[in-house]
Design a binder for these strands. Structure first.
Lengths: 230, 230
DNA sequence: ATATAATATCTGATATATCAGATATCAAAT
DNA sequence: ATTTGATATCTGATATATCAGATATTATAT
């Protein structure tokens, strides 16, 4: 059996640069609302806190800025954007489109050997779904999507998806906490799997897009519900 | 008639930071192929050349990196993306997907005023198509697509398309050289226009994706033909 | 001549220092 | 009490210095 783990990126990443580490940390903190909307992210303060200089920190902030999670006003400061959810949603629309083409390309290009790997993963997903093992399932789902974008054999799309796929990580867990969502997620993944194996590119793309966009809606709804409660 | 120009962003930019200026300069230089694919962009050298320090330069490079225009390898260097540039086809798959969602979002969000602008552009396109004015038509086509991704009101997708868009600037011209292609192009644009105005999001996305993927095929074919001739 | 190891050099990554705009503070004037 | 303006202070923007990996070079051994 192949190894499934949530942090594939630990491997083969020789000395992750500080800016990348900090970027991840800040992003996680913002998405998990440790830093709330409007919070002032002070360069010096954070640098001191993390025990680094301001240079890599600044680079991390730049990236967050481009993704819309923070807003920087010259010589005033960098602040957590007022509407993070909007940024996340924006990025997820892009993700749905990109993972959609990836599924199409995978359907067009997948080899017999790769079908085997994808099948194996799907079998595992069924088992863990029935066992309601959410933890393992999250890892497997991630693996499933990664296999597909790998088999698409399109480097640009692969990189682009890699850059943004983590944006719903904090929500994914929440989404899978509902039992019916667990089952539904598997059904969708299985349908995508079938379409790719059948080399039905149109269907594969359509299903993948629908799958991701539905999760966007799901996240939006649960957020709205959380907001209404407070 | 409305004015068509590429630099609306000149207005209202108080004290543009050095990093922004440098970012634009580098981007322009890459797109105009002053810096060819694979070219090594050396931080110190460029900083000296521009008469600035490496800090803002580094920030500009980071941004270009995220957009995929350059690739940075730790402690080796930053290079103008070559593998990506080479496979215009790879990148265009992404473009079709992203412009597709953009069309969907535009259909969902477009306002009456924006419909007016889009209509005006479409009218112009018809006129220039009938007049077989290829030069103007290229500009208008670009404008048409830009309006749509603007009306999508999704900053992330907008940026991503703009970045991709810049890659195939050179070869787009080729696609419109054939007369029947001219006419066909207009028909497709018009259909997309109608779908958006009718707020038929599904159709708008589908048509846009089809439109772009067909031009990918068209360019591939003419490329192959040109190769066979040589 | 080729392979290999020592080393010099180039380059990005990071740290630190300085500059300048923006805001806050507070005193003087009305 | 309110306004105004001088000034102190905070903060991001930029510049410069240092660190460390990667590559090229050269010398040495076989």
């Amino acid at each position: 059996m192949m190894s499934i783990h949530g942090h594939e990126e630990d491997i083969a990443l020789q000395t992750r640069s500080i800016r990348d580490v900090i970027y991840e940390k800040l992003k996680e903190a913002i998405l998990s609302e440790q830093y709330k909307a409007g919070h002032h992210l002070k360069e010096r303060e954070l640098a001191k806190q993390f025990g680094i200089s301001t240079t890599p920190l600044k680079e991390a902030l730049r990236r967050l800025e481009q993704e819309g999670l923070v807003t920087t006003s010259a010589r005033r400061g960098t602040f957590v954007s007022s509407d993070i959810m909007n940024s996340v949603e924006e990025i997820n629309w892009a993700r749905s489109a990109l993972e959609g083409v990836a599924a199409r390309l995978a359907a067009l290009k997948i080899t017999d050997e790769e079908v085997g790997m994808l099948t194996e993963t799907t079998v595992q997903m069924r088992i863990y779904t029935e066992a309601k093992n959410t933890e393992q399932l999250i890892a497997l789902n991630g693996h499933f999507h990664k296999l597909i974008r790998t088999y698409a054999k399109n480097n640009y799309i692969f990189q682009q998806i890699e850059a943004i796929h983590s944006f719903d990580r904090s929500f994914r867990k929440k989404a899978l906490s509902h039992e019916d969502e667990l089952e539904r997620g598997f059904q969708e993944h299985y349908a995508i799997y079938q379409a790719i194996v059948a080399k039905d590119a149109d269907l594969a793309e359509k299903l993948m897009i629908g799958h991701i966009r539905r999760t966007i809606e799901f996240v939006k709804e649960s957020k709205a519900a959380a907001k209404a409660k407070s």
